[in-house]
Simulated assay, not measured.
Amino acid sequence: MKKLQNSLYINTQGAYLHKERETLVIDIAKEKALQLPIHSISGIFCFGNVMVSPQVMGFCGERGVNLAFFTEYGRFLARVQGKQTGNVLLRRTQYRYADTQAAEIARVIVAAKIQSQRQVLQRHQRNYGKHPEISQTIALLKSTVDRLRITDDLDTIRGLEGDAAARYFSVFNQLITEKSGSFSFSQRTRRPPTDPVNALLSFFYAIVGNDISAALQGVGLDPQVGFLHRDRPGRDSLAQDILEEFRAYLVDRLVLTLINRQQVKPSDFIYEASGAVKLKDTARKAVLQEFQAKKQQTIIHPYLKEEVPLGLLPHVQALLLARHLRGDLEHYPPFLAR
């Protein structure tokens, strides 16, 4: 199991990351702003116009440090990967499952995702009282989970997942208790996000998805070959599969907290003429600090029954999936917080 270490997020435009002996150095406006040993971090995330020297890329690949690049919107662009590790037999098993038994794993992932969405809605009602629309959505999501139990058809599973997501986001605006109306949410928009709520969701989904990709590679799995998401060039479909387990629990709850506690404001966003909305640099730094703090929190893992930091959950689930594919576990246990 990887030790939970700090991740380095670089969002200052024009920053330059380079190497000095066994350390990483960040220059801003040609002045040294930060220097730290590479063994103190597990991942580097670069947003927007951040320059990285070829020596750093090779250094990270050699040391197994995840180096990833995103747009200013938080959309994933690329990742530097070192030598492929892990058992080729595990990956061959993964490919066979993807071809012949994908529905088995996809079903439990989708069920866990929908249960987490229900928990977000139920948590809101416990705190703020019942709302007819939300109560109806909770009941409909439960019905969807019941339907999942009796289907082995992958297309049906995908359809149920899409319908559940639409119903969940149809009441998402009700969960925003910040009263100014500046963070109104009508529907999920992705490329690009067209309002502050979608900008935050997309930003954090991209970061968690990249964490999951790194975790899957760490146990020897291929992040691009999934079970729920179809293969598509350039997409880490398996990482997107596992991300479904964490969307509501890790990201949606964090976004709602940031908005409802007014830790982000409308002035923290840039509204472009194209309709795209993105976080300003200063706001991005602030929300990343909140995310890093959240990753340090611990829970009792529902399957392992052990205390685990939230930042290690992608690594735990990657390990459990690998154990299932090897035959050590009869079923893959998706993450579902109690």
Rank of each mutant, 00 (worst) to 15 (best):
A215L: 00
F291H: 01
G86W: 06
L310T: 12
R230G: 13
F185N: 04
L288Y: 05
N49S: 12
A286V: 06
G327T: 05
P302A: 04
L141I: 13
D155V: 09
V65N: 06
G275M: 08
R107P: 07
Q55P: 05
M57Q: 07
A102V: 02
S116N: 14
H124Q: 02
L160P: 12
D155Y: 02
L160N: 13
C60I: 08
D222I: 10
R190E: 00
F70Y: 13
I176N: 08
P192M: 00
T298S: 13
K265C: 07
R167N: 11
Y271V: 00
S143E: 15
A111S: 13
F291C: 01
L321C: 01
C46F: 05
I105P: 02
L313E: 09
L175P: 11
T151R: 07
T23L: 06
D236Y: 09
T71R: 03
R126T: 01
V50H: 04
A78C: 01
F269P: 07
C60F: 01
Q317M: 12
I41D: 06
Q122G: 00
I212N: 00
V277Q: 04
L313K: 11
G159F: 03
Q262P: 04
H18E: 11
Q115S: 15
G311I: 09
Q217I: 10
R149G: 04
I105G: 02
I299V: 15
G64I: 03
Q297P: 08
G82K: 07
Q55G: 12
L320V: 02
P233S: 13
I212P: 00
M51S: 14
V208A: 13
